[in-house]
Amino acid sequence: MMANCLERYFQKYYAKCYRAAFALVKNRADAEDIAQEVLVRLLVYEPEFASEEHEKAWMLRTAINLAKDLLKSKWHNALVAIETVDEAEKSYLQIPDVETDDTLWMVLELPERFRNCLYLFYYEDYSIREIADILEEPENTVKSNLKRGREVLKRRLQERR
């Protein structure tokens, strides 16, 4: 049954999972692997979703967790140790309906706890409650991360100028 729905899941979530993964791993190849792995896990585990919000949260949470796992792995740490987004990789992250500028790349260079909240809130248009579901954190933590992350971002932008 899940196999029949795979196309629908692919169309609906592949790009979102790819972007969420890219925000963490910052390269196309790894982000694509993660997005595909999310769909594989969906087929393997066949989770039952209570609602569409639950479904979306599961998909993105899995993508973010897989990205975190990749970043934690020794192999990845040995190869990629920088927080900045490579110029060549920038063209592989295109967010629909949103005009991207340098601020996006600055957001992706923030510490992880701020980066996820800011990226999902501003660039993927998720509400604070949805972000709390995806990241499995309390809403107040998300709110404070958004505020602190914005302050850090503002400071970094001022320093750069």
């Binding site: 629909p96 957001v107 248009d125 958004l146 932008l157």
Partner: peptide
């Protein structure tokens, strides 16, 4: 409304709103 339903989206990350 979602971003897809919008004709234009402006992300003001530094100011703290969209």
């Amino acid at each position: 409304i979602s971003y897809a339903e919008s004709d234009k989206v402006k992300v003001c990350t530094v100011e703290g709103y969209t």
